[in-house]
Amino acid sequence: MSTTEEAVATTAVGGPETVRTGERAAEKLEQAVPAPGRRATFRIWRGDATGGKLQDYTTEVSEGMVVLDAVHQIQAEQANDLAVRWNCKAGKCGSCSAEVNGKPKLMCMTRLTDLNLDEPVTVEPMRTFPPLRDLVTDVSWNFRVKQRIKPFRPRAPDAPDGSWRMAQADVDRVQEFRKCIECFLCQDVCHVLRDHAKYDEFIGPRFLVQVAALEMHPLDTEDRIDELKEAFGVGYCNITKCCGNVCPENITITDNAIIPLKERVVDRHYDPLRKLVQLMRGRKP
């Protein structure tokens, strides 16, 4: 890496030296890829709501491939009915969530060069949601949860044209939460849902992030603190941080979203003095 940095440091604006660094990057890639004609085995879960089993497929792998490419290739060549959700294939839509070698991942962003291809690569559906078929799970619960969150309610506009004024610094922290692509990998890995199946009492990290985005939105005037404590079950989270570790957008879910929400609940419900002051000021905590 250091040689690359040095090379760039000496380039002229848009000049040929910068270009050469691009070529070097291509060379770097070529060294890291599997040899042409290399084959790898993918152990893919096939089945439906009634059950299923892992099935091996061997296919040719080539440069730069991701797990979703391999799945598509198998689908096109060996198993036309292999069910998989996907859309953008660029890590932006959050459709192709699955468990690759047991780890919650977006298949489109999991490169084969990061996996040991000497062993079969296991690809299974997210375990927290009911299986529909093959790699596709029933994630409809998430959409029902979303419906239960009180919508955005802005303060009156700041300007006659109906617009508002906000400082970028105040927008920054909410923009982090709004990077969420709703892949539901955080929901998949969360033990409150995965191991304890608290679907009725806990909304999961994704929707705590959404509540945080609303609660910390500079314009929002709605109050969701009571639901957080009761219906949304923020107390169930014991901050193991598994959710943040699997987030493809690197959202700091627990530290930046869930812990501040927990603090708001504590302030409201367990600090009578503060509550009194807030009531007198008539302000939202």
Binding site: V19, T21, G22, A25, L29, A32, G91, M109, R111
Partner: peptide, 21 residues
């Protein structure tokens, strides 16, 4: 940010240091 991550993750290219193809 998305472009930075896209090239870093899918092509091993750091766009703050190297040109994209």
């Amino acid at each position: 940010p998305s472009m930075y991550h896209q090239f870093k993750q899918l092509a091993d290219i750091d766009i703050t240091k190297e040109a994209m193809e």
